[in-house]
Amino acid sequence: MDDIIKSAKQGDHIAFAILFKENYPFLVKYLMKITMNPDAAEELAQETMTKCVQKLQLYNGESKFSTWLISIATNTYIDHCRKKKREKEWHLQEESFRKLKWHFESRNEEWNDTLSALGKLPEEVRIPIILKHYYGYPYEEIGKMLRISAGTVKSRVHNGIMSVRRELKIDEEAENRSNRERASKQGRF
């Protein structure tokens, strides 16, 4: 285990602070991807860190510290979603995207359909897709993080990819392209 983590576990506040400062941007960016909402990402990052202060003694160094952080952050977000659904205070999708879109515009970057398609997915599908295909975690590890079986993770990732494909009309594009190719081949003969 890292020396800095050992020191933090022994109660060294400075080591703890360094550990958090190093991992903070990574954590916020991860949360931005799964929430699609920069404000919520910062709030959740701070809540995740407060949970880490209480739970650091439970960290055994089996996985990377960043993986442990992601796991706590993910479960904190899922708990929030459940609470919000229960309270029926679920914001409209467009409203939560607004701030992220604003960030894109301020950097002269275009908001694209893939982000909209990802945002439309339910969080229990979006999170495994991001963890699998962006962060490269194996299905088993994602399953451990989300407390579900690897098979469930696999099917959620698959269904999610299919939904994004449908939303982006990739199948239609591919079909049109193959039709065009076929037509041009026939024209040649």
Binding site: R107, E109, L118, I161, L168
Partner: peptide
């Protein structure tokens, strides 16, 4: 496409 889109968020 997903990776490229998420990369954009990572650059914020």
């Amino acid at each position: 496409e997903i990776i490229q889109a998420l990369d954009k968020i990572d650059h914020i």
